[in-house]
């Protein structure tokens, strides 16, 4: 929580109030806001909450139809359809979390001008409400996977928790950044829409990193001939830096099948040495997605904090 810095500005202008345990105090408000936003999102629709299931299902159907049925793209991995579905569900979370959180401050002007509470609560609530939907969808994907496919459940599954945390932190950091800027510059919503389009393709929703590597003939075997398209290496490097791609790939590994390798092994080329996997052979890039997440959270928090004090006046 970033908004307790009001007190104790000795010497400077400020308002000093008795200290209170801000987390405990505001936890309840955060939950209440998240719950009501969750309810509001599906109000006045006949199918209500079902939309949160239908939407990813429809995106999945379109993606699957275009890439698998029409263009016959299939990366050859096991449960390709399931892997695409998982990618779509993760993407839907990221897209909904960032776009609904972006307006969290601007659309609650009345509340901000009339009541005091840490402003970040509004963004936390909006992102949590997207997270509820995501978790339910994830469980459904898992149930489908268990029921229809003989997926191989292993100890890898514990990795799901840190991966979800990483994904949430990324979305939350970006949400803080966007919501703070959106108060004054509504342009960010348009810019973000375009960026999301780009990110969609850079997140490996309908193909794995390995597949891209194979298509580009970057390195099929260790010590094999040079990549056929060396000028395209940067595309793969950008994709490998994308935490969404990394979490989707790792979730596939952890949740669905060990055949889809950990991203780390693909990027570093460690796996290629053993199994003749296509690999990027760029060990230096392994920590990049995590650095991106840290950057998003700190950058978002700092931006939000410096702008939060004037929200009430600017709205």
């Amino acid at each position: 929580m970033f908004a307790t810095a009001d007190a104790g500005l000795a010497g400077a202008a400020g308002v000093a109030t008795p200290p209170l345990n801000s987390f405990r105090h505001y936890r309840h408000l955060t939950l209440e806001l998240a719950i009501s936003q969750f309810k509001l999102r599906y109000t006045q629709s006949v199918l209500g909450y079902l939309w949160s299931l239908i939407k990813p299902a429809m995106i999945f159907a379109i993606t699957y139809f275009i890439f698998v049925d029409l263009f016959k793209i299939n990366d050859g991995t096991k449960f390709y359809g399931l892997q695409v579905l998982l990618g779509v569900v993760v993407w839907t979370f990221f897209a909904e979390c960032t776009s609904s959180s972006m307006a969290a401050i601007a659309s609650n002007g009345g509340l901000i001008r009339k009541a005091y509470f840490p402003r970040s609560i509004l963004v936390i609530a909006a992102s949590l409400s997207a997270l509820f939907t995501f978790l339910i969808n994830l469980v459904i994907v898992f149930v489908i996977a268990v029921a229809l496919h003989q997926i191989d459940i292993g100890l890898r599954i514990v990795m799901v928790i840190p991966l979800l945390l990483e994904l949430y932190l990324l979305a939350f950091g970006i949400s803080l950044f966007l919501s703070a800027l959106f108060v004054q510059f509504h342009d960010v919503s348009h810019l973000w829409e375009v960026l999301m389009q780009l990110l969609f393709y850079a997140s490996g929703i309908m193909f794995s990193l390995t597949y891209v590597l194979q298509r580009l003939h970057l390195a099929l075997e260790v010590g094999a001939k040079k990549p056929q398209t060396p000028h395209l290496v940067w595309i793969v490097q950008v994709m490998a830096a994308n935490p969404i791609m990394q979490t989707i790939e790792d979730l596939r590994h952890a949740l669905l099948t060990p055949v889809a390798p950990w991203t780390e092994l693909v990027v570093s080329g460690h796996l290629a040495a053993v199994h003749q996997y296509a690999a990027l052979n760029a060990a230096w890039e392994v920590p990049v997605p995590f650095l991106v997440v840290i950057l998003a959270v700190t950058g978002g928090a700092l931006t939000f904090r410096s702008r939060a004090r004037s929200f009430a006046e600017n709205l």
Partner: peptide
């Protein structure tokens, strides 16, 4: 609004 911490003062101090 300053007393309720909604606005921040530019100068001065409020103790509650």
């Amino acid at each position: 609004k300053i007393l309720s911490r909604i606005y921040r003062p530019d100068a001065g101090m409020v103790t509650i």
